[in-house]
Design a protein around this nucleic acid. Structure first.
Lengths: 267, 267
DNA sequence: CTTGACACTCCCCTTGGGGCAGGGCTTATA
DNA sequence: TATAAGCCCTGCCCCAAGGGGAGTGTCAAG
């Protein structure tokens, strides 16, 4: 039997934390004095605590740790795998951010300008050409694009058609949420009459964004404010066309994305 | 002039966030209607917002972003570098955790045992040999070890002495805090009489921990509870000796650390 | 009997907002 | 003309994982 202070030293955890875990029911002391409220711990608590710390290190939230500790082996195995994938995704994201930061720092050293924004975006008004596409509309998050584009390309291959070199995504909701939005992915095909649909010619404000996708919002902002200031208004769902993207073997800073906003002259 | 809702769509940021930023003084609207309280934004706010989002992506806390935006170029440059190092450290940490998770998952698949703990630690009682060491005592965090060990080895080289193959750290505070504790690093030298001091022979409970340092707490816990249960008590500062460590080119899972707890028989 | 080391509960604080209640303003529609 | 729909506002409580401190109770030693 250890008092809370002793026990905290053994597990290298603060007393506060032990009391907190007791409170949320994650690690109950083996006994509590009814009159003084003193908590007493023993060996089995120690083992549980070490496991908790380990899982915490793997990034599990405490609530899930509690569930895992009282759950079965299968769930535990699955949770480990899921967490592995999550950490892996985090690692990729972190590396992307690091590259962006480096690029930004270099640009800053060159130009002395805190932000090289809004100088690069040349915005044009164009009438788009009609494009016959295979498309797939669905509610999805930003990290699902890859999966669904693969589906599209498989379908095209299965039907013996030829991709036409235009790959893009259309945003059907006003507010875009990385986690989940209503999105339509499309890939152009040469065989016009066998396509799912055709993107009709539209008057669009458009620009080209160079760099990783995480900075697309800058181009987006530039376009939206251009539209406002030049007396147009939005008229339909905007879309991106990926000229050079994640699948090419270029570095993220050399990717190229065209952004199209259907517009009409304001009344 | 944009209303808050419009502006939120332009920057792809929630209205709530805009109000919050206004509240903490990070991004003030260009004007606020005195009677209705309506916030109005314009172009310059847009640029500032994009920069804020960029810095947020790099991991800066909002408060620091505010300071950077009103600070000078030099500070900005330094902050970028600092943040780069921080992200880099995070990446390394994340990779370590991933390796640990993989090792753990494999062990789990093999043994079917959620935790292969407390089976591995063979605890022994020994009388240590005296060791002549160069040492450096200081309040430091866990990530400073490398730096200070380098200092020690440089001193040894400068004085023309020969390292004796024992590298370790002694913990002078009861509660260990990764961030900052009173720690004494030591490296043994062959030239006994020119050493800083000698680790005197002591009766110690000891064990060997195999694996990354992050799981040292398990060995530590095993030792502390062994001491309690076998009628001993702690008698002095415990220390680690790194047999195979971060500087070797072994994978973390093959590192070996000896842990020593000076003890005496309880009265 | 007192002192010091420990223990307890209770409350407020952190980051970066999300969610909801309750209310004000303007405009489009029945 | 009434009302409903969109905007907008403030103010309150909520999240995770505890940290810090106030005020008070308990235990063993001198």
């Amino acid at each position: 039997m250890y008092q809370i202070g002793e026990f905290s030293k053994i597990c290298q955890v603060s007393v506060k934390t032990l009391r907190y875990y007791d409170g949320i029911g994650l690690l109950k002391p083996s006994s509590v004095d009814r009159f003084t409220g003193y908590r007493y711990y023993d060996r089995s608590q120690l083992e549980r605590m070490l496991l908790i710390q380990k899982l915490k290190r793997y990034g599990f939230p405490l609530e899930e740790i509690g569930a895992l500790l009282s759950g079965g082996e299968g769930a535990f195995r699955r949770a480990l795998r899921r967490q592995r994938d999550k950490l892996e995704a985090q690692r990729v994201e972190l590396e992307t951010i690091l590259q962006e930061l480096d690029a930004q720092a270099q640009a800053f050293e060159r130009t002395g300008n805190i932000m090289d924004i809004s100088n690069g975006y040349e915005i044009k008004l164009t009438e788009t050409e009609p494009v016959a596409v295979f498309s797939l509309r669905k509610r999805m998050g930003a990290e699902d694009y890859g999966k669904y584009f693969s589906e599209l390309y498989e379908r095209i291959a299965k039907e013996g058609l030829t991709p036409g070199g235009v790959t893009g995504a259309m945003y059907h909701e006003e507010e875009y949420d990385r986690e989940s939005s209503e999105i339509e992915l499309f890939v152009s095909v040469r065989e016009t009459e066998r396509a799912d649909k055709t993107l009709e010619p539209r008057l669009c404000a458009t620009t080209v964004h160079k760099g990783a996708y995480s900075t697309l919002n800058e181009a987006y902002a530039a376009l939206v404010s251009w539209i406002e200031e030049n007396g147009y208004e939005r008229d339909g769902a905007p879309y991106d066309v990926y000229r050079q993207g994640a699948w090419s073997n270029l570095a993220p800073k050399d990717w190229e994305t065209e952004i199209y906003f259907p517009v009409r002259k304001k009344a």
